[in-house]
Amino acid sequence: MEGEQADLVERAQRGDRAAWDLLLRRHREDVLRIAFRHVGPSGDLEDVVQEALIQVYRSLHTFKGQARFSTWLYRVVSNVAKMHLRAKGSRPRLAEEFAQRAPRVDTHAARGDDAAERMRRARALYAQLDRLSEKKREVLLLHDFDGLSPKDIAERVDAPIMTVRTRLFYARRDLYRAMASDPELRELYGELGELRRAAGQEGGQ
């Protein structure tokens, strides 16, 4: 499989369109997953995926086969997602605000609808993640959301393991502080009181 993959990449690098098409079909879901992990449930996801695929095409010649293709792909896609988040951070967020003001319609059982509420909570969490620095955010996503070990993260982000651990600690600390000052997130979850009691009770054990 690895040999076949290497052959496919090499053919695509030589300008073989059929090989590129196959490569695209084979990895587009990976690109979507990486982009989704970075930007979260956002209306910009399709734009980011498209930009990332274009960047993969343009950067294909830089893949030398020294790292795994998945690692290289992750770096390319995550860089595009980071650029997107940077640009987003420097622009007025008309679309986001509009989306938040948009009417919500309930049909069968609107209140407490699980999927809808989960999606809202995820958006709120990503809004907090957007406050973190790029490096901290990336390490946190890889560790806490993708379940990667610090060693694997170090390879992905090209940094020493200790640096990864340090970034992870400060990322979590910053995130908790941000969450603590976000009443909407608490309201969304609606279980803080219960969790607090649980925290106290467990502490008493």
Partner: peptide, 14 residues
């Protein structure tokens, strides 16, 4: 206790 409650909220969200 408050910090740990926040942490539990985060764990659930995560």
């Amino acid at each position: 206790q408050q910090a740990r409650a926040d942490l539990l909220v985060y764990e659930r969200l995560r």
